[in-house]
Nucleic acid binder design. Structure first.
Lengths: 114, 114
DNA sequence: TGTGTATATAAGGATATACTTATATACTAA
DNA sequence: TTAGTATATAAGTATATCCTTATATACACA
């Protein structure tokens, strides 16, 4: 997988979007799979519009992909992103968020659509 | 070199500081050595207070170190930072800034203090 | 000591950010 | 079609950010 150089402006834009606790947690939550908006709302304990707005920033920079599945929209990491190597190194450094998804599952709130 | 986990808040703070074109350029300029404030001012074509304020953010998060040498203060990367791996992956991705230092040297504006 | 140079800090203003509440859109199922 | 659920967008507001100009601090040298 070739690594392309990324202009400073673009790299700065990516880092700025990643530089927020909420969005970083979202990235951590979809490290190994996808989540839908209502799952983020539950895990993050934030309002739905607020979560939507954070997801929009992630989507606008191309860091995440979305996939509609019935009434749900699932978000996942865009591993094709030019700056994905940054995302990877961030994910290696921050604590795993999987326990939060486990907790969701235990509460019966995990959305599964396969 | 052990890689420590970094809390989400701290990682977000680091990414936020890196998420600015000016500061990212500064990081690029000191990739392989140190620069003093007046060199940044010349390369970045920005006011001295503005540069100082950017350097302060980088210093406050611990991403750079400073070293006074006579009347000059030299800044360099803090390779001991918990999140240095992020800095490294960013530096691998963005274009080299060394040409700007070469240009400074050609204009006789490079400060050397050894 | 006084003057000049390098850097930092303070204060103020324009713009960006991250919430809020209200509303619109898209899909599902009766 | 209508009602309900999931998500997005709009508008407003408090706060943060990044610049500016003015001033303070630290050092060098005569």
């Amino acid at each position: 997988m070739e690594k392309t150089l990324v202009e400073i402006d673009k790299a700065a834009a990516v880092l700025k979007v990643l530089g927020d606790k909420t969005r970083l947690t979202i990235i951590g939550l979809i490290k190994d799979g996808e989540c839908c908006v209502c799952e983020f709302v539950e895990v993050l304990q934030m309002s739905q519009p607020s979560v939507s707005q954070h997801l929009r920033k992630l989507r606008d920079t191309g860091l995440v992909k979305e996939r509609r599945r019935g009434q749900w929209i699932f978000y996942s990491l865009n591993q094709e992103h030019d700056a994905f190597s940054i995302v990877e190194s961030v994910l290696e450094l921050i604590p795993d968020q999987m326990d939060k998804l486990k907790e969701l599952e235990n509460k019966g709130l995990r959305i599964c659509c396969d």
